[in-house]
Nucleic acid binder design. Structure first.
Lengths: 310, 310
DNA sequence: CCGGCGTCTTTTATCGTTATTAGACATTCG
DNA sequence: CGAATGTCTAATAACGATAAAAGACGCCGG
C-alpha cells in the first residue's frame, strides 16, 4: 500500500451530509473551501458520488438524485490517518500501564503490533518526542521516560508559568478585543453545563480545552501555544483513561473556571493570578491522584482500543 | 544507498588517535564504552585497522604495527550523519536570507538540492518543527514562519521566564552540590578568556552555552532543558553567521556573566534575578540587531557552505 | 564464575517507489 | 472578464527493502 485515501473518505463522508433534495451542491471551489481539501479531492468525491448513484453531475450542475443512507458512508476506521491510529495505539500502551519507565521502545515492534510500516512509526515517534515522554540517542533505541509523577510536576511547573503570563496578557487586552466576548460565551457555556452537570459532565473536557486555549492565545507566543498542545494531548488521553470521580471532579473544575473568569473580568492582576493558581493546583492534584492507580478498568480499556486486548 | 557507515568512520578516526607504539589497545568492551559505539562497530573498526596494516589483532592481543598518518583518516565530510548535513544546509538557507517569511518549503526540492532522499528531509523537518520556525498542516506543504524579530521576542520572553526560574532553583542548591564547584570552574574560564579576549574571543560561544546550560540544569525540568536546546541551536548558527562586532559583544557578555555569577553566589534572589535579566536583555538586543541585517558577508557564507554559493 | 571474545538475531537509518493530494495553468461559460 | 471547470504537473504520505549498528547468547580461559 502507498498513500491511503483517508482524506478522500473523510471528505466524502462529510460531503454526504451536505446533500439535500431541494438544493444542489455549490461550486467545486466553494466545496473545496468548505471541506478544507483541494479541488482535486473534491472532484474525486463528486465522481464517486456519481458512481454511487447519488448525484447527477455535469459541469456546473450538480443534481442530487437520492439522499445518502448509512451504507453510503465509509466506516470511521477508514477515515483516520495512519498517524492518528499510531498515536492512539501508542497512548493506549502507555496509559494501560503495560509499559513502565525505562522500557525500550522498538520501532519495528510497534510497527508490527499496530500493523503499519516502520517509517510511519518512526515519524510518529519523532513528532511525539517533543512531549518529553520518550527519548532516544543517535543510533540507539527509544526509551520510555514515562508518564510519571515527575513528569506531571514538571509539566505543571511550566504550565503555571505560562498560564499566569497569558493571564496577564489577557487582562491587558483592550475592552473591545474579541477575546472578551469569546470569554463571555465560554462563561455562559460553563453555566449551562453546570446546570445539567448530572447528564452532561462528559462535555467538560472539550470546554476545558477551549477555555484554556482562549487564555493562552492572548500570550501571542508560539512557544506558549505550542506547549499548550502538550497539555492538551495529555489531558485528552488522561480523560479517556481515568473516569474515577469524573462528575464531581468536573463540577469542581467548572466552578473554579467561573471564579477564574470573574478574576479576569475584574482586570485585577492579583485576583486573576490567584484564581488561576488555585485552579491549576487542583488540576495538578487530579492528574497526580490518577497517576497513582495506573491501570484503568478493563471496561475503559476495551472501549478505547479493542485490537490490543486480545 | 542504504544506512551509511558514518558512525563506523567516526569511530575509526577516533580510534586512530588512541594508537601508540608502546601500549596495546584495551578490550573490545572497553573500546566500545570509550568510543560510545557498540562492540559490533568496534570489531569493524579493528578489522579495518588490520586491513590497513595498522594493527596485529588476534583475540585479546592488539599490537600496533605502525602509527597512523593523515591519509589513514576518513575525511570529515564522510563522518557527518545525513541529518546533520541536512540541518546545516537548511540553516544556511534560512540565515542567508534567500528565503523569506511565508515561503513554501518543498521536501522534494530540499532533498534534490542537498542530495539526500525525501524521507531524510521529511524526518528532519518534523524534528526541526519544534523550534517554531517552520510549520505545516496535514497534507500540505511546510511554510517558513521565519527567523524574524517576532520570533526572537517570543523566544526571549520564554527564555527569561525559564532562566529566572532556573536561577532561583540554582540558588536553593545546597552548598555542597557539585553545581557550585562547576560554577567556580566556569567563572575561572571566563576570567581567563577575558584576559586573552583579543585572540580567543571566538571561544566564547561554547563557554556561553555551557554556562547557561549549567544554570538551567538546576531547574530539573525537562521542558526547560528542552527549550534550552532551541536557544542553543539558534545561537549556534547565529554566531556562525553574524560576526559583526563579535569581539566587543563577547567581551561585554563575559562581564555580564561574571556579575551574574556573583549574584548567584551571593544567594540573593533579587540580585541574581536582576543580573540575569540584565544579561538576557542585552543578549536579546544582540540578536535583534543582527536580524536587521540578514545577509551575511560573502566571506562568511563561503566558509560555511561552499556548495551552495556556485 | 566473570570478564572477554565469537557468532547470530534484531533493530535502526537510510533509500527508492507509488497512489493520493495539492496546486498551477489553460479553457470555457454565463 | 471573472468565476467555474478541465487538465496537467509536482509534491506529499505512505510503503518495503537493505546495509549498518546494536544487542543477545553462549563459550572459553584464568
Amino acid at each position: 500500500m502507498t498513500k491511503p485515501n483517508t482524506l478522500f473518505k473523510e471528505a466524502y463522508n462529510s460531503c454526504l451530509g451536505m446533500l439535500s433534495m431541494d438544493a444542489s451542491l455549490p461550486s467545486e471551489t466553494e466545496l473545496s473551501a468548505r471541506l478544507k481539501v483541494s479541488r482535486t479531492t473534491v472532484r474525486s468525491v463528486l465522481t464517486a458520488m456519481v458512481d454511487a448513484g447519488l448525484l447527477h453531475w455535469e459541469k456546473t450542475s450538480k443534481q442530487v438524485i437520492r439522499l445518502p443512507v448509512a451504507a453510503d458512508y465509509f466506516p470511521d476506521s477508514e477515515t483516520d490517518s495512519i498517524s492518528s491510529v499510531i498515536e492512539r495505539a501508542f497512548m493506549a500502551r502507555i496509559l494501560s500501564g503495560r509499559m513502565t519507565m525505562g522500557d525500550r521502545i522498538s520501532e519495528a515492534d510497534l510497527a508490527r503490533d499496530i500493523g503499519v510500516s516502520t517509517s510511519a512509526v518512526r515519524e510518529f515517534l519523532i513528532r511525539f518526542s517533543r512531549f518529553g515522554i520518550i527519548e532516544k540517542q543517535r543510533n540507539r533505541h527509544w526509551v520510555l521516560k514515562g508518564f510519571t509523577e515527575e513528569f506531571a510536576l514538571e509539566l505543571f511547573e511550566v504550565r503555571e508559568m505560562f498560564e499566569i503570563r497569558s493571564t496577564h496578557a489577557f487582562i491587558r487586552l483592550p475592552a473591545q478585543h474579541p477575546a472578551w466576548t469569546a470569554l463571555e460565551r465560554i462563561e455562559a457555556e460553563h453555566r449551562a453545563l453546570l446546570e445539567a452537570i448530572d447528564t452532561r459532565y462528559r462535555d467538560f473536557s472539550e470546554l476545558d480545552e477551549r477555555f484554556h486555549r482562549l487564555i493562552h492565545n492572548a500570550s501571542q507566543n508560539r512557544f506558549i501555544l505550542e506547549f499548550y498542545e502538550i497539555i492538551s494531548m495529555i489531558f485528552h488521553y488522561h480523560y479517556q483513561w481515568n473516569k474515577a470521580g469524573e462528575k464531581e471532579r468536573n463540577r469542581v473544575a467548572i466552578e473554579e473556571h467561573l471564579r477564574y473568569v470573574e478574576g479576569l473580568r475584574s482586570r485585577s492582576l492579583i485576583d486573576a493570578e490567584y484564581l488561576c493558581r488555585k485552579h491549576l493546583i487542583s488540576a495538578r492534584q487530579t492528574l497526580l491522584t490518577s497517576l497513582e492507580q495506573p491501570t484503568p478498568s478493563s471496561e475503559v480499556r476495551k472501549r478505547l482500543r479493542p485490537a490490543l486486548i486480545a
